[in-house]
């Protein structure tokens, strides 16, 4: 009909840039999403670590010394905190994203979460054993 009606239908209320600072749950949501940057950073860091190991003993020692510099430690402490946030939130959300059935019965969410923590413990123990033994 009129042009104004068409405009009204296509109107979208603009969302303010800092909408996620208004509520704690929104803030945690955005922090959880930002964990992606730190996962990418740690992949890059681990790649550089492997490269240093491949380049020989001196390069490995140099890398460890560089990694102990205050700015890199600060970055890695922040990255580790985001990884912990990712792990906790990912495990908590899994039962909502996935329905597991055993013999026709739905596995309760708490069992799925506990299973993931058991897997985390197993992976952690295996990697620690492989690297430290």
């Amino acid at each position: 009909m009129s042009r104004a009606t068409g405009d009204d239908l296509s109107y979208r209320r603009p969302v303010p840039l800092w909408w996620w600072l208004h509520k704690r749950t929104y803030f945690v949501f955005v922090m959880r999403e930002l964990s992606s940057i730190f996962i990418a950073w740690l992949v890059l860091y681990l790649l550089l670590f492997v490269r240093a190991v491949g380049r020989g003993e001196a390069a490995y020692q140099d890398f460890l010394d560089d990694a102990a510099s205050p700015w890199l430690v600060t970055l890695n402490v922040i990255a580790f905190a985001f990884i912990v946030l990712h792990t906790i939130t990912w495990f908590s959300l899994t039962p909502q994203a996935m329905v597991v059935r055993v013999r026709g019965h739905r596995v309760p969410g708490i069992a799925i979460i506990a299973g993931q923590y058991a897997a985390l413990a197993a992976v952690t123990a295996f990697v620690a054993w492989l690297v430290l033994s």
Partner: peptide, 25 residues
């Protein structure tokens, strides 16, 4: 999803050992 699961399982120990525990002694 696969990457999210693997990061949740593997990254904590890898980041702790290689980015913090070893460099800081």
């Amino acid at each position: 999803s696969g990457g999210g699961v693997l990061a949740a399982l593997f990254m904590p120990v890898l980041a702790f050992l290689f980015a913090l525990a070893f460099p800081l002694g």
